[in-house]
Design a protein around this nucleic acid. Structure first.
Lengths: 159, 159
DNA sequence: GTCTGCATACTCGGATAAGAGCTGTCCGAGTAGCTTAGG
DNA sequence: CCTAAGCTACTCGGACAGCTCTTATCCGAGTATGCAGAC
């Protein structure tokens, strides 16, 4: 899996702690996490294309969440970065060449495909069941200083 | 996900229908599914390294299952081809650079990592819960002609 | 007729290229705010 | 003093290389089979 997913998730979490009405530029987000600015910008663009964040250009511009974090699932973020295609894709390789006379033996759907889809569905259900807000709440409980620490950093440091 | 997984799963299923005591060479398996022989051979080698199939060289040689299909899970096959590493791997990018004085704010484990692991675990559980024998039984119920069709093809055709 | 040695064909195994996708970088498009000059 | 036009600085956005991993291929290592020749 692309590591852009990790970056995007962390950025979404950061954005929940910004001062209301402010946006975080890609440069600051990159500096905060020690990541290459331009490439992170590319990932954030992907989030913007899927309507997870909104982007504004010019001074005081940057990215902010397009909707409440309770309405952004981990699945949404993964899909935005990785694309919506299945990881396992059936290429229908059953049986000897398509010109085989007994080809109709394989009318029924491929059960290997179904089994893999079932597993991948379980993965997607788990991802769709957790929102950015859930993570936010857990962090605020486990490490109460992180939100303020983050907010302050984005408010003060000019990177 | 590598398409070698699909190839490997189909091959394992084929092997369950071979005449007892016989082995299927990579060339025949490749011809049966319309795949490049040499590359499929490489995937089968990966299965052999993980002890899922056994390989014998020379005439009448080839691959056969190393144990009963009820003891081969889909997880085993996926791990053999894709490796045992997690798809999502946390690189610990939380907070500003490691030399930040307030670094100890991030003592607690990364919750994004935990969330992603949880989802991936659900995927693995699903895969580990289905065996090649399960697929075999389902196919024999849904498409009763496939087993004999396959057995005959491997017994007769010299590819 | 039987045994032994050898040649042969077959198959896996690992080392070696080609291609695709992820990773990383750069510069142009667009915007907000400041500056400055005029009324 | 107030207004407005222009300028500057800042930020996103998409187009352009580098690099790792998947895909694909080839040839050598090893083995069972069948044959030929000697006893």
């Amino acid at each position: 899996m692309s590591e852009g997913v990790e970056w995007a998730l962390h950025c979404c979490l950061d954005l929940t702690w910004l001062d209301p009405g402010t946006a975080a530029p890609a440069a600051k987000l990159a500096a905060f996490h020690g990541l290459p600015t331009a490439y992170l910008n590319k990932q954030l663009q992907a989030l913007a294309r899927d309507g997870i964040v909104t982007s504004t250009r010019g001074p005081r511009g940057g990215f902010r969440l397009a909707r409440g974090p309770e309405r952004i699932t981990l699945m949404d973020v993964v899909t935005a970065i990785e694309g919506a295609e299945q990881a396992f894709r059936c290429t229908e390789i059953r049986g000897p060449s398509p010109k085989d006379p007994a080809r109709d033996v394989y009318r029924e759907p491929c059960l290997i495909d179904q089994a893999m889809r079932k597993a991948e569905l379980a993965w997607r259900v788990e991802l769709a069941g957790q929102t950015v807000a859930d993570i936010k709440v857990q962090v605020e409980r486990n490490a109460p200083d992180v939100p303020e620490h983050t907010r302050r950093w984005f408010a003060d440091v000019q990177a």
